[in-house]
């Protein structure tokens, strides 16, 4: 029975010492220990958070870089395309202009040729008329002298005139 009969003195001391222990440890041990633990956990959490953030920032930076690179490539391609287009256009324009100029030159040449031809024809006509008049004058003069000789002369003149 002694074993299961709580003794008065031990109850008293147990109460006193245990409460003392709760109060003293609570104030001088558990409070600072738990605070340190919480602080350390917070700092670890913060560090993890920071690492996560940094990683995200790095990823963002990389994405930005990639984007900038892609944009640069697109821009380069656009510039190249434009340059090519411009060049083609210039070439086309130049070709066109050259063709037109050549055409105009040819036209001009043709025109001047025609003009000259016309002038030459006109001159020839004038000369022919002049020759014809001279021949006719000569023939008329000769007719007065010799008929046969006149004809020969005319044909000779004509021959000459053709050669002209």
């Amino acid at each position: 029975m002694d074993l299961i009969t709580p003794s008065f003195g031990l109850i008293f001391w147990q109460l006193v010492f245990f409460l003392l222990l709760v109060i003293v440890l609570g104030k001088f041990a558990w409070k600072p220990i738990l605070a340190s633990l919480a602080e350390r956990e917070q700092s670890i959490e913060d560090a993890i958070e920071l690492a996560k953030k940094t990683r995200a920032e790095m990823a963002q930076l990389k994405a930005d870089n990639d984007k900038a690179k892609a944009e640069a490539i697109i821009e380069r391609d656009a510039i190249l395309k434009q340059a090519r287009q411009t060049a083609e256009k210039m070439i086309a324009t130049a070709k066109n202009e050259a063709a037109q100029e050549a055409k105009a030159e040819i036209e001009k040449a043709r025109k001047s040729f025609r003009d000259e031809q016309a002038a030459a024809v006109a001159k020839l006509k004038g000369e022919t008329a002049k020759i014809a008049i001279e021949i006719a004058e000569k023939v008329l003069r000769r007719e007065l002298a010799d008929k046969a000789a006149q004809e020969t002369l005319v044909s000779e003149w004509l021959k000459d005139a053709k050669l002209n």
Binding site: S7, F8, G9, L10, F12, W13, Q14, F17, L20, L21, V24, L25, A29, W30, I33
Partner: peptide, 22 residues
């Protein structure tokens, strides 16, 4: 009986140990 019995002495020892440890 408020005597410091064997159990009370051991109790005090454990309290001292706990205080020292923590």
């Amino acid at each position: 009986d408020f005597s410091v019995t064997k159990n009370v002495a051991s109790l005090i020892l454990s309290v001292v140990l706990l205080l020292l440890i923590f």
